[in-house]
């Protein structure tokens, strides 16, 4: 790779060694800060799950007869632990590797800006499971009030369906306003590169 002499950066003064060291220090501090924030989040979330888990066990102690509330609560705890464990993996998936070829980067970016993809299906499944668990908890809790199953399901749906619709409409609106023009621009660039071939 030869250095080009015919085009130079206008009035660019080179960074000297102490300046680069300062930059490295700032970048290192930034890395440390990010790691610390992630560690704190992880700890807070772990403690919250533990406290919740202990509280549901205490509620059922001395376990002469395991209550029906315990089962959905335990399922919820397992789900939260699962989320906690997959969080670093998900975080890694969303990190951009800028050292890939341009065409590959653009294709990944285009995928990221899709409105409906596999992440949506996972999101919907999670929402349905949470709704199911909360419906069971509702049913068990309101049994003492002699509420009918239909009424409980209706209450549960009346909370979740509008919530889900609001989230979907909000995501769709922001996607259309901010991400769709980007997706179109990225597609244009991909087409341009693929036309070279």
């Amino acid at each position: 790779m030869k250095d080009s002499n015919n085009l130079q950066a206008p009035n660019f003064k080179k960074l000297d060694a102490p300046q680069i060291e300062q930059i490295v220090d700032v970048l290192k501090q930034n890395d440390t800060k990010r790691k610390r924030v992630l560690k704190i989040l992880f700890l807070v979330f772990s403690v919250a799950i533990l406290v919740y888990f202990v509280s549901i066990l205490i509620k059922d102690y001395p376990f002469t007869k395991i209550s029906q509330v315990l089962i959905p609560n335990l399922v919820l705890v397992i789900m939260l632990i699962g989320l906690l464990l997959i969080y670093p993996v998900v975080l890694k998936l969303f990190q951009t590797d800028f050292s890939r070829p341009v065409l590959e980067m653009l294709k990944r970016a285009e995928k990221k800006y899709k409105f409906i993809d596999s992440q949506w299906i996972i999101f919907l499944i999670i929402i349905l499971i949470v709704d199911l668990i909360i419906s069971i908890i509702f049913k068990l809790f309101f049994n003492s009030l002699n509420w009918s199953t239909e009424k409980i399901v209706l209450i549960s749906f009346s909370i979740f369906i509008p919530l889900l619709l609001t989230v979907i409409i909000w995501i769709w609106y922001s996607w259309k306003k901010y991400q769709l023009p980007l997706k179109n621009e990225i597609r244009r660039m991909i087409n341009e590169i693929e036309d070279i071939n």
């Binding site: 790779m1 030869k2 250095d3 080009s4 085009l7 070829p101 341009v102 065409l103 590959e104 590169i193 070279i196 071939n197």
Partner: peptide, 14 residues
């Protein structure tokens, strides 16, 4: 910048 055709192809991915 003085990159060869091969190097540019590697950067762009074509």
């Amino acid at each position: 910048e003085g990159l060869s055709g091969k190097e540019i192809a590697e950067v762009v991915g074509v």
